[in-house]
Design a protein around this nucleic acid. Structure first.
Length: 483
RNA sequence: GGCGGGGUAGCCAAGUGGUAAGGUCGGGGUCUGCAAAACCUCUAUUCGCGGGUUCGAUUCCCGCCCCCGCCUCCA
């Protein structure tokens, strides 16, 4: 049984998809606004969503996921104006970069990435706004913009658990919208303004562009239907964005929009909020440029429970690197055991692999326990704890000569299953001719017991990102860090 | 002021009404030409603070303190 924390109810709920067969899961995740490179805080949310999707899939669900791309809003318009290029030309490179970054972090691609400027989506938004107007849930103000009338939607505020009467303005958003009936009414359609330049679409209410919230309602219902199983985003999207989505969508369909709302806590950097003014603002590219690999960043962003604040630090990146190296070495070691024999079949009874003899052992059934931890609202720390205990125990037993090729193969198969969720396994980079030559030279030096030269060659290999280890089976050269 | 999330070893972090997983760092050891890896071992009488319930609380209840966030277009 999978349990997830639903923001709406503020409780852990058993997860059951709407699909009568209980198999298909409709999942919508708020994507990036492409006015710059996404930062690691954004990616924390996307990595969390990826972990959720992968775990649901491991548990046999068929996930249909949509992630939107916001390519028109105040910031993208401002950016294109400042760059002096058309909007689409301004956002294109950021879209491309976003998809590259997803790949770097091994985030599975959603089934579709609808864009807000897609005519088909704009059409759907206009259709929905029309419906809301017909029902009296929206109105066109004197400034020609169309607003949602929150007083007509009694449930408004239920997701965020806000009492609307208690709200007070933070002054973050300029309140120049005197035309609204209620300060809390939000724009569905923004009338064209001079600063919008060429950015405009025709609508029954005049030229303009869609409000931000309506795009998610339109795309989600258009691509996944009127009711979703899961909708994710960062905690800062709870209000007003997701609240507005509920109002708009349910205002049109009369049906519950989302069954499970999941929100990811914020990322902090060195104990502080990430901000350009503090100089601690990082894009994924910034971290990669420091020499870290995508999977190292993935691990660092993933290893803390999604509802707890995550403090990003360089010390944390080093920890991620070391932890992954430990996993890599373990998997390599098992691979080596398997190669010792030919035509190895995995031990048939996986349960028999549990390490029951030692009283100090905490993990009795790693196969089940790892997945059970993730079932519990994605308890990643618990799951990783089981993985690492299993690693220590299997390493110990390999040292003791207790694991044969058949059992090693079974552990590797388990690891492959685990890694379908974690997606952190290493790739051995191809040995180049230069590295091979250095390795060969070092072997010769060792045979000649020229330790000094052998150590120098080891340093040279290290400088190129490779490590030479002397084992009883001879020298082994492996990639260290990165990759 | 309202609504959330969090405060567990140097750092990251799981967890349960019955006496603290795991990762990382550091010390010692086995192994090694030396290393590395691996393994063994040491490092929280203690879980923000103060009360209460209980035979027993880090875990339940009450109060308080601190950090982070949202309060109308920031994941």
């Amino acid at each position: 049984m999978i349990r997830l924390f639903n923001t709406y109810s503020r409780t852990l709920e058993e997860f059951r998809p709407l699909d009568p067969a209980g198999r298909e899961v409709k999942m919508y995740t708020c994507g990036p606004t492409v006015y710059s490179h996404a930062h690691i805080g954004n990616f924390r949310a996307y990595v969390f969503e990826d972990l959720l999707q992968r775990h649901l899939e491991l548990r046999g669900f068929k996930v249909r996921r949509v992630m939107n791309i916001t390519d028109v809003d105040d910031k993208t318009i401002r950016g294109s104006r400042e760059a002096g290029v058309p909007l689409a030309e301004f956002t294109a490179p950021f879209k491309k970069a976003f998809f590259e970054d997803l790949e770097t972090l091994r985030i599975k691609r959603a089934d579709s990435f609808p864009e807000a400027t897609d005519p088909r989506e704009i059409g759907k938004m206009i259709e929905m706004i029309g419906t809301l107007l017909e029902r009296g849930l929206a109105y066109q103000a004197e400034d020609k913009s169309v607003y949602f009338r929150i007083n007509k939607f009694p449930d408004y505020g239920k997701l965020a658990h806000f009492d609307l009467a208690e709200l007070r303005s933070t002054g973050r958003v300029q309140s120049d919208e005197y035309d609204k009936e209620n300060i809390g009414d939000f724009a569905l359609w923004k009338a064209w303004d001079e600063v919008d330049g060429a950015v405009k679409w025709e609508s029954p209410w005049g030229a303009g562009r869609p409000g931000w919230h309506i795009e998610c309602s339109a795309m989600a219902t258009q691509l996944l239907g009127e009711q979703l199983d899961i909708h994710c985003g960062g905690v800062d999207n709870i209000f007003p964005h997701h609240e507005a989505e509920i109002a708009q969508t349910e205002g049109c369909t009369g049906k519950q929009f989302v069954r499970y709302w999941l929100h990811c806590a914020h990322l902090m950097v060195e104990g502080q909020k990430m901000a350009k003014s503090l100089g601690n603002f990082y894009t994924l590219r910034d971290v990669i440029a420091k020499g870290y690999s995508g999977r190292e960043v993935r691990y660092a962003l993933m290893r803390v429970h999604y509802r707890a604040p995550l403090n990003f630090t360089w010390e944390g990146m080093e920890e991620a690197r070391q932890a992954l190296a430990r996993v890599d070495d373990w998997a390599r070691r098992l691979g080596g055991k398997v190669e010792e024999e030919e035509n190895v079949q995995p031990a048939s009874a996986l349960d028999g692999l549990r390490r029951g003899e030692r009283p100090t052992s905490n993990v009795q059934h790693p196969m089940e326990e790892f997945e059970a931890a993730l079932d519990d609202d994605l308890n990643i720390s618990g799951a990783l704890g089981i993985l690492f205990e299993t690693i220590r125990e299997t390493n110990r037993r390999i040292d003791a000569g207790e694991i044969d090729a058949s059992e090693a193969k079974a552990w590797l198969e388990w690891w492959e299953r685990v890694d379908r969720v974690l997606a952190i396994s290493g790739e051995d980079g191809a040995l180049t001719a230069e590295i091979l030559a250095l390795g060969e030279a070092r072997m010769q030096a060792r045979l000649a017991k020229d330790w000094r030269k052998s150590d120098e060659l080891r340093d040279e290999l290290a400088a190129r990102g490779w490590e030479a280890r002397d084992t009883k089976d001879g020298q082994k050269i492996t990639r260290r860090g990165g990759a």
